[in-house]
């Protein structure tokens, strides 16, 4: 199902937290423009997997390459790589002491050394796109969770990333705010953004994903198209998981 040449490639990645084997020999290739949704029970290592791609979690063994280059271990090279990979967190993590607009322009100005005026213009355009342009001068705590998460997406997009990582972006939201965030993500997916999305939103996985990855106990158990995965899961673990979440 790969829609382009590989952008993110994980090869035999292992990760231990002390004695806990959170990623067990995981290999995965994400093509340019592909939307991969990672699902699985909690503690299965899916968030960790997402966080290894921009090295917020260092790995114990194996290799990860991004756009043909192995992930740098540290320093300026790692910072540059991270600037090319947008990340959206479960808890939004907007900079609490900066306004909404400053949150969006900080990266372009400080990392890309962009002129303040052009960063501001693009920042406002991005806020407009996610529907929050009229809140630009407020502080994060004054916004609802759904609005904050949309700002977080705009902040990541402001860096013009080659790929976006979403680590359970809707898990901390009130139910009525989930839709507005998923709408933004769906439109991003349609525009051809390469996305790795860890989520419990099966609806999003069904209609927006090119591929669904199912993880359990640190292992990548299934890797299939959404229709295949939801219609005809191969592993017992996936059948069990789906029966638990889809019967309610």
């Amino acid at each position: 199902m790969t829609t382009g040449e590989p952008l993110i490639v994980l090869d035999s990645v292992n990760k231990w937290f002390g004695p806990l084997h959170v990623l067990d020999d995981v290999s995965l290739s994400v093509g340019k423009g592909e939307v991969v949704v990672v699902i699985g029970p909690s503690g299965s290592g899916k968030s960790t997997l997402c966080r290894t791609i921009n090295r917020l979690e260092p790995i114990s063994s194996g290799t990860i390459t991004f756009d043909g280059q192995p992930l740098p271990a540290e320093g300026k090279a790692l910072a540059r790589l991270r600037s090319e990979v947008g990340m959206v967190f479960q808890s939004f993590n907007l900079f609490a002491h900066k306004t909404i607009l400053e949150n969006v322009t900080l990266g372009p100005v400080k990392v890309r050394k962009e002129k303040a005026a052009s960063a501001r213009e693009r920042g406002l355009a991005l806020l407009d796109r996610v529907g929050i342009a009229n809140q630009a001068d407020k502080f994060p705590a004054q916004l609802s969770g759904g609005q904050q998460q949309r700002v977080a997406i705009a902040r990541a997009l402001a860096m013009q990333p080659k790929a976006m990582l979403f680590d359970e972006p809707t898990s901390a939201l009130d139910p009525e705010m989930v839709g507005e965030v998923l709408d933004v993500m769906t439109s991003l997916a349609r525009e051809g953004m390469t996305m790795v999305v860890v989520t419990h939103e099966m609806g999003f996985a069904r209609h927006a994903a090119n591929r669904v990855i199912f993880m359990a106990d640190g292992k990548l158990v299934e890797d299939a198209s959404p229709t295949e995965f939801f219609g005809n899961p191969r592993s017992e673990r996936a059948k069990d998981f789906l029966s638990k979440i889809l019967t309610h």
Partner: peptide, 10 residues
């Protein structure tokens, strides 16, 4: 998360 978000944008 504040520091993580900062590192994540580079």
């Amino acid at each position: 998360g504040q520091a993580e978000a900062a590192r994540a944008i580079g």
